[in-house]
Amino acid sequence: MARVVCLHGVGQQFSGERELHGSWFPALTDGLTRAEAPALAADDVTCAFYGDLFRPRGRTLAARDAPLDAGDVGAGFETELLLALWAEAARTDRAVVSPDARTLARAPRSVQRALNALDNSRFFAGLAPRALIHDLKQVRAYLCDPAVREAVQRRVAAAVTDDTRVLVGHSLGSVVAYEALCAHPEWPVRSLVTLGSPLGIRTLVFERLRTGEGAGPGRWPGRVAHWTNISDEGDAVAPTKDLRPLFGERVVNHLVHNGARAHDATRYLNTPEAGRAVSDGCHLA
């Protein structure tokens, strides 16, 4: 059974567990090689998949169907997350016009301006506005809809076995992994590896974390002995690169360079930092 369980982020609704394994496992293998760590077999690694929970059901097209646009970005959480991404992208990318205080008043026009600005970003290159809007809605669904959250967590629980020693969470998957470990201190998982994590977005993510009865955000996740957090300076989804102020001094944080694809899961996985963290976790007693 798998010693490493990988958890994906948003935008995977058209993928699947085998397809993800086909790209993630080779990247992780390269990371292990860069770290001069022992190789893992293909069946040592599995991808817990829940992207299909966000895939719209098939239907008959209506005459006036149109793609998502700025008007489909929900007020509240979705708009606030979009504006936070804009602010972080502008901080790290000169091609992105910086928002001002007036823009961040969350008026309808600011949503369109944010989408226009992010269209010029290296980080969001190639991501159509409708895809970005879908991603915003997936994050909101997980953090704000208890039924979606429970369904995702059931998929993770089904993938973890007595042999599992490492959880690797990319993007929203890092939030899923953290909450799963808090909910299951009985699991034998000894190492958490978070890649491009939004866990440090205080109001929108951190303060919404579900960590168990009587425990607030920032609780140490389960029986984990080691937590390694890896981020790229230009990764707008992970604006907080150092998670220690929120989760404690035991979190080990690394900055890596992923080039133009700062948030790409495979570019994180093939780093020596990721390879070393996964290997160390697999060999913990």
Rank of each mutant, 00 (worst) to 15 (best):
Q12F: 05
L104C: 04
A180S: 13
I133A: 02
L118N: 01
L192D: 07
A183R: 12
H226N: 13
F54Y: 12
G275K: 07
V96W: 02
G173C: 10
G200S: 11
A90D: 04
A66Y: 07
D163W: 07
V166N: 03
L61G: 05
N120Y: 10
V10R: 00
E249P: 00
H263A: 12
V111K: 10
A42Q: 07
N270G: 03
I133H: 03
A114M: 08
V175K: 01
Q138M: 09
A42C: 04
G200N: 08
Y178D: 02
E80N: 13
A215V: 09
V176I: 14
A48T: 01
G11M: 00
T194H: 02
S197K: 03
P188A: 14
Q13H: 14
E179N: 01
D43Y: 02
A89T: 11
P99T: 11
F124A: 09
F206M: 01
V176D: 03
R94Y: 06
T203S: 15
R109S: 11
R155N: 00
K241D: 01
G76F: 10
D163H: 15
S174R: 07
T46C: 14
R149M: 01
T194K: 12
H184Y: 04
V224E: 08
F49Q: 04
A236E: 00
G16K: 05
G218F: 12
E207N: 13
V156G: 05
V10I: 15
V4W: 07
S197H: 01
A147D: 14
E88A: 14
W227V: 04
A141D: 09
D119P: 00
L136Y: 13
L181Q: 13
A27E: 03
L68H: 08
P129N: 08
L143K: 02
R165M: 03
D119L: 08
R55K: 13
D52Q: 13
D52P: 01
D52W: 06
P185S: 14
T266H: 02
A285V: 13
T103H: 09
A90F: 06
H263T: 11
V278M: 03
S15W: 02
T79H: 08
T164N: 06
T211D: 11
L269S: 05
L82D: 03
A75N: 08
V252M: 03
Y178R: 00
G126F: 07
P56S: 11
V160A: 10
A84C: 12
P221V: 10
W227H: 04
T240Y: 01
H254V: 08
T161C: 07
G58C: 05
V252W: 02
H184A: 15
D30M: 07
P198R: 05
A141R: 10
N229E: 05
V97G: 07
S174N: 09
F14I: 06
A262R: 11
P99K: 08
V10N: 01
D30K: 11
A238E: 00
T60M: 15
A114L: 06
